[in-house]
Simulated scan of single mutants.
Amino acid sequence: MASHPPDCCCTKLQCARLNNGYRGTPSGTDLVINESIQGYLARPKDPDRRHSAIVYLPDIFGIWQNSKLMADAFASHGYTCLVLDLFNGDSVSLNMPHDFDIMGWFAHGSDGKNPHTSQEIDPIVIAGIKYLQAQGATQLAAVGYCIGAKYVIRHYRSGIDCGFIAHPSFVETTELAAITGPLSIAVAEMDDIFTPEKRHESEAILSEIKQPYQINLLSGVGHGFAVRCDLNDTSQRFAKDQAFNQAVAWFDRYILD
Rank of each mutant, 00 (worst) to 15 (best):
T234L: 13
D111F: 09
L183Y: 05
G62S: 15
P47E: 06
P168E: 10
Y40Q: 03
N34C: 11
L69R: 01
K68E: 02
N19D: 12
I160D: 08
V221W: 03
I215E: 10
W105I: 02
D230N: 13
R253N: 09
L31T: 06
L132Q: 02
W105T: 05
R17M: 05
I54R: 05
L94D: 08
G24A: 02
L13K: 00
V171M: 10
V83Q: 05
V83E: 05
T138I: 02
I129W: 09
F106R: 09
I54W: 03
F74V: 04
D252M: 04
Q211G: 04
G136R: 10
Y156H: 11
D122V: 06
V143F: 03
D192S: 06
I179H: 04
I37C: 11
M96Q: 13
C15V: 01
T180L: 04
G224I: 00
F238L: 10
F100V: 10
L57G: 12
D72N: 06
G109S: 12
H108K: 14
N34E: 14
C8Q: 07
R237Y: 13
P196T: 02
G24F: 09
G222Q: 09
N245C: 08
M96K: 06
D7T: 00
T180S: 14
Y131T: 04
I209M: 07
F164H: 14
C15N: 05
D191Q: 06
A186C: 13
L256T: 05
I126G: 15
N66T: 08
S93M: 10
T234M: 11
I126W: 07
H98Q: 12
P97V: 04
G112M: 08
E201V: 03
A188L: 05
G144D: 14
P5S: 06
L31M: 05
Y22N: 15
G222W: 01
E120Q: 12
V92Q: 08
D191G: 10
H223N: 12
N34P: 14
A134K: 02
A178G: 11
T174R: 07
V32I: 13
D30V: 07
K198D: 15
C10I: 01
N66C: 14
G109M: 08
P58V: 00
G112T: 02
V32K: 10
A142C: 13
S67Q: 13
H98R: 01
V92A: 08
E203L: 01
A73T: 03
S27D: 03
P44I: 00
T195W: 07
N34W: 01
A75N: 07
Q38V: 00
D192N: 10
P58G: 10
F170I: 06
S93F: 06
A127T: 08
